[in-house]
Simulated scan of single mutants.
Amino acid sequence: MRIVVGITGASGSIYAYTLIRALQELGVETYVIATKMGEKVMQFECGITMEELKPYATLMDNRNLFASVASGSFLTDGMVIAPCSMNTLGAIANGVGDTLLSRTASVVMKEQRKLVLVTRETPLHLIHLENMTEVAKAGAVIMPAAPGFYHRPKEIWELVNFMVARILDAFRIDHQLLARWGEREVK
C-alpha cells in the first residue's frame, strides 16, 4: 500500500505526525508533502521538524511539480491532507494545482483514488462549505478534525488516535488504535 500525506498550515499537525508514524508501523509506504506554513505549524505545535519525519516517510518538496506523486502513472492508494487548511481546500475545489500538494490532490481525484481532507477550521462560512461540497461531489471525503468522545478519552493522545483511526479506516487499513463500538468493551 502507498499513501501520500499532505500537511498544511492549519492547526492540528499532531494528526499528521501521529498518522505518519502509524502508517510506518503498519508497513505502509508513505510520501509526505508539507506547505511552508505546515512545516512551521508542525514545529510550533509539536516541536517536530520535517527532518525528524525522514525515518517514517519519503519527504517531497512542495515546489517540485516534477515529483513522482504529481503524475497519475505513479500508483498510490490515495492521499490524506491532515490538517487541511481552508486555503488548500479552496485551491483543490477550484482545480488549482500550482503546488505539489494541490497538484497531487488533483491527480488523486482525476484517477478516482481516495482523497481524505481532514479539515480544521471553525466556525465555517459559506465559501468553506461550498468548497467542501465541490470536492465531495468530485469524490473526496471530508473528515473534519472532530473526534468522538464515546470511548471516554482522558488524554489528548486518545483524541488524536480517534481521528487517526478514522483516517486509517477510510483507507481500509487494519489497526488497533482504539476500541470499535460494539466490538470491544469501552472502559
Rank of each mutant, 00 (worst) to 15 (best):
Asp174Val: 09
Glu39Ala: 15
Trp157Leu: 14
Gly27Ile: 07
Thr58Ala: 10
Glu130Met: 14
Leu115Gln: 01
Arg184His: 13
Thr49Gly: 15
Glu158Thr: 05
Pro153Arg: 12
Val164Tyr: 01
Val116Leu: 12
Gly90Leu: 13
Thr99Arg: 03
Glu183Met: 12
Tyr15Asn: 11
Ser71Pro: 02
Met109His: 02
Val118Cys: 15
Leu115His: 02
Ser68Cys: 10
Pro153His: 09
Ala140Asp: 01
Ala140Ser: 11
Glu29Gly: 05
Gly27Ala: 08
Arg172Gln: 14
Phe162Val: 06
Asn62Arg: 02
Leu178His: 07
Val5Leu: 02
Ala105Thr: 08
Glu130Phe: 10
Arg184Val: 09
His125Pro: 02
Ile142Thr: 00
Glu121Leu: 08
Ser102Trp: 04
Val96His: 13
Pro147Leu: 05
Ser13His: 04
Gln112Pro: 00
Gln43Arg: 12
Tyr15Arg: 03
Val32Lys: 00
Asn161Gly: 04
Leu178Trp: 05
Ala140His: 04
Thr104Ile: 06
Ser106Leu: 09
Ala165Ile: 03
Gly182Glu: 11
Ile173Gly: 00
Arg120Ser: 11
Val135Ser: 12
Pro147Tyr: 00
Leu124Arg: 07
Thr133Leu: 15
Gln112Arg: 15
Ala138Val: 01
Glu29Gln: 13
Ile33Thr: 07
Leu177Lys: 04
Gly47Met: 01
Pro123His: 13
Leu19Trp: 12
Thr30Ser: 10
Ala140Asn: 03
Asn87Leu: 13
Trp157His: 15
His175Asn: 14
Val28Ser: 10
Leu19Tyr: 06
Arg120Pro: 03
Asp174Pro: 01
Ala179Asp: 10
Glu183Ser: 04
Met143Gln: 06
Met86Asp: 09
Phe162Glu: 14
Val4Lys: 01
Val5Ala: 04
His151Tyr: 12
Ala34His: 06
Gly95Tyr: 04
Ala165Thr: 00
Glu121Arg: 08
Val135Lys: 06
Ala22Tyr: 02
Leu126Glu: 14
Thr99Leu: 02
Ile156Phe: 12
Phe66Ala: 15
Leu117Tyr: 07
Glu45Phe: 01
Gly38Lys: 02
Gly12Asp: 08
Leu129His: 03
Asn87Pro: 01
Met50Pro: 02
Asn64Met: 06
